[in-house]
Design a binder for these strands. Structure first.
Lengths: 188, 188
DNA sequence: ACCAGATGTATCGTTCGGATATATCTAATC
DNA sequence: GATTAGATATATCCGAACGATACATCTGGT
């Protein structure tokens, strides 16, 4: 429509939106729902980010919106413009920067020295439990995705699910090795 | 001083502050510096969180502040009160909840389908590079910590540094396996 | 005497996150 | 067939978080 240029930087929320819209056209509500069952485990997004960002992207000409009311309820579905697709590809080709972790379990292990010596190993056991719960959630997601009608298992989306599950397994094994080592020290 | 009670929940920033103050008394500036060379990799904190939180903790009676000016520059160092130590221990004993990741590399892998088929594997290679850089940073931290005068290597603090390095190694190996598998598929 | 860099405190603007308000549609229950 | 719970859809609010920066003073080197 208007003279859309590829911006040289996109907010992470913008890239998630462009990414999902590259698969099919969606409403903001659908994008949020997709995030919650897929990228949530390595990048979350809330309505408070998605709706304003959709408007910005529309103004920038990276997405187009079309009114598709269902019954008497208004509804806008968005799809990528050619410029939007180029912007997504440009972002995909740049080296990743952000790598942040918010891990309460690790924080407790880090400060375990403030506990009586015999109790410190409990922080590691707490971490094991946390990752068991996390893995169980991912298993549920996996089943839901696999039960989906139009599920392409060669897709790269599957890769990140596997990454999540493998990661949980790895952390659990790592902690259990350390728990065993700590308990041996305790006996010695 | 005043009737301090153990709050039944602490903000994560509060627990970091209490955790560091359990080791020794510190100024807000020192706490920030410690975070940047230690917990930053699994839980960051900024001045904008630390200074207001210190004031809240002081008002709640979990920490005490003492004016220790250096020359003409004002300076306040904080230390734990007995209630603060109890609050820290109570938090350490609770099961961890937060486990969040912000991983731009994974996000690119997830949306790799939007790239031409031959280019998709580059997203995995980008992730490898990202974790190599991350590991190099941690190695630097490790050397700085080990060169420290009062360094207790039996401490649980060392554990999380090792976790970070092992994690990077694991991710790199995981990606390289997937890169090999993808390149074999490409040839087939 | 000067200056770069470390120390120390604080705040500003932006983004983020969780919760919530509002409204309509769908499907099941009674 | 009426009622109601829950899904769909859009949007906003507020507090918390984040990065950057302003400001002042001290320290060490040139």
């Amino acid at each position: 429509m208007n003279a859309a240029r590829i911006p040289d930087s996109l907010s992470p929320t913008a890239t998630i939106i462009l990414g999902f819209l590259s698969q099919r056209e969606m409403s903001g509500y659908e994008i949020k729902a997709e995030v919650d069952i897929s990228t949530r485990f390595f990048w979350a997004a809330s309505y408070g980010q998605i709706y304003p960002e959709l408007k910005k992207l529309r103004a920038a000409g990276l997405v187009e919106g079309a009114d598709r009311p269902q019954g008497g309820r208004k509804r806008t579905v968005y799809r990528l413009t050619p410029t939007g697709r180029d912007a997504l590809r440009a972002w995909l080709r740049r080296a990743p920067e952000t790598l942040e972790l918010r891990h309460e379990g690790m924080l407790k292990v880090y400060f375990a020295d403030a506990l009586p010596a015999g109790e410190r190993v409990e922080t590691l056991k707490g971490m094991v439990e946390q990752h068991r719960r996390h893995a169980a959630q991912l298993e549920q997601t996996k089943e839901a995705v696999e039960g989906d009608e139009a599920h392409d298992e060669s897709s790269w989306c599957d890769l990140v699910l596997r990454f999540g599950l493998d990661f949980d397994d790895w952390v659990i094994e790592w902690c259990e090795r350390e728990i065993a080592a700590a308990e041996e020290d305790g006996r010695a």
